[in-house]
Simulated assay, not measured.
Amino acid sequence: MLTGAVRTAMEGVFPVNIVTCSCEGIPNSTLLSQVWYVDERHIALSDQYLNKTRVNLMGNPNALLRIYGEDLRTFDLRIEYLRTETSGEVFKQMALKLEAIASYMGMLDRFVLRGADIYKVLEVRERTHYWKREEEE
């Protein structure tokens, strides 16, 4: 399920957008700094400042993730929250990457990984973009 272009997009430079919904039906959308490939059916997302997202996921574990690739391909992943890991290999690797990003940006004190949220990927869809090219006269 998570092969080829989707995995390449996950390693890209563009922020990832996650959309959750509360039990009352109120949506929330926020940007994330990294998506981590766990295996063909699972990803991990960095838990840094996701207070509203966290509340929504505890009541409704379903979410939509939009990933933008460097080649302008866009992928929508329907995902389901499973658990949060605060130790282990996935957490350690994500923390190292986040530390490198923070160091580069001069924000070591502001970028702290609280947990690696593990999700099951339910569906992957590539969004089709139709680019209209204006004809030269």
Score class of each variant (00 low, 15 high):
Leu96Met: 12
Leu122Cys: 03
Glu99Gln: 12
Leu32Gly: 02
Leu2Ala: 09
Gly106Asp: 00
Asn62Gly: 10
Tyr104Cys: 14
Arg73Cys: 11
Trp131Arg: 13
Asp47Ala: 04
Leu77Val: 03
Val16Leu: 03
Thr3Glu: 12
Leu108Thr: 13
Val55Trp: 09
Val13Gln: 08
Leu113Asp: 05
Glu136Pro: 06
Asp39Leu: 05
Val38Ile: 11
Leu98Phe: 08
Thr30Ile: 13
Ser33Arg: 07
Tyr130Val: 15
Ser29Lys: 07
Arg7Asp: 12
Glu134Phe: 14
Asp117Ile: 06
Asp76Val: 08
Glu136Ala: 08
Leu31Cys: 07
Ser29Trp: 03
Glu136Gln: 08
Cys23Lys: 15
Ala95Asn: 12
Ala102Val: 04
Val90Arg: 00
Leu108Gln: 14
Ile67Asn: 02
Phe75Glu: 05
Ser46His: 07
Phe91Lys: 05
Arg7Leu: 15
Arg133Met: 14
Ile79Trp: 04
Leu57Lys: 01
Thr53Glu: 00
Gly106Met: 02
Tyr119Phe: 10
Phe75Tyr: 13
Asp109Ser: 13
Asn62Pro: 10
Met58Ala: 07
Leu32Thr: 02
Val35Pro: 03
Gly12Asn: 05
Leu31Met: 08
Lys132Thr: 15
Gly4Arg: 12
Asp109Asn: 13
Tyr119Gln: 00
Val6Trp: 09
Val35Leu: 04
Arg7Met: 14
Leu64Pro: 03
Lys132Pro: 14
Lys97Ile: 11
Met94Tyr: 01
Gly69Asn: 07
Val124Lys: 09
Tyr104Pro: 12
Arg114Cys: 08
Asp39Trp: 06
Val90Glu: 01
Arg54Trp: 06
Ala95Phe: 07
